[in-house]
């Protein structure tokens, strides 16, 4: 069980369940497929020497954001998307074309540059949290504080948006 094998399996699972998410027409099942996909991504993060991010990924994404999605889906009781004749054929054709073109461009640029850029520098002990925390609260302290203000703004904003209007 080399790290590479584990990484490839986890990444494959993430891709597989991402496909399930896009293809499945039931929104609740889509959310669940994405949970599995994000969980597999967390495994790849551990292998890329970022256990803190892996934990944050599971706690924030799988544990909070996607639960919120499920919560809203249940609250609104969103029905399954019905398969219907495409009412905007041009839109869909253009979308499909754009996706294929983008994938081709991405693959081409990966082949050209992907694996050759940048050179490795000093070793870092994998999985140690203290250096990350030190960096976060020294060099990036201002961004961290700005982020807390952003979260506060989001909190107030979502409260205002979702509040039921008082009956006149």
């Amino acid at each position: 069980m080399t790290p590479r094998l584990v990484f490839d399996v986890a990444a494959g699972l993430a891709i597989l369940f991402a496909c399930v998410m896009v293809v499945h027409r039931h929104p609740v099942k889509s959310v669940l497929a994405l949970v599995v996909s994000f969980f597999a991504l967390a495994v790849t993060y551990v292998l890329l020497a970022a256990p803190l991010i892996a934990a944050v990924q599971v706690i924030v994404y799988a544990g909070a954001i996607l639960v919120l999605f499920l919560f809203v889906l249940m609250l609104l009781n969103v029905p399954e998307e019905v398969r219907q004749t495409p009412d905007r054929p041009i839109h869909q054709a253009l979308s499909a074309g754009a996706i294929v073109a983008f994938a081709a461009a991405l693959l081409a640029s990966l082949r050209a540059y992907g694996a050759t850029r940048a050179a490795p520098s000093a070793e870092l002990p994998p999985g140690d949290l203290a250096p990350v925390a030190r960096l976060l609260f020294s060099d990036h302290f201002l961004s961290f504080e700005a982020l807390s203000i952003l979260l506060l703004a989001a909190l107030v904003g979502s409260f205002v948006l979702a509040r039921r209007e008082e009956s006149p």
């Binding site: 970022a50 490795p120 990350v132």
Partner: peptide
């Protein structure tokens, strides 16, 4: 690959921003 920690910081911020985005979007 570059043995840099800055990448983890960036991702940390992206996840936090995604959380804010999800809250507002769902509202």
């Amino acid at each position: 690959a570059l043995h840099s920690l800055e990448g983890q910081i960036v991702v940390f911020f992206v996840i936090a921003i995604a959380a804010a985005e999800a809250a507002v979007g769902l509202a």
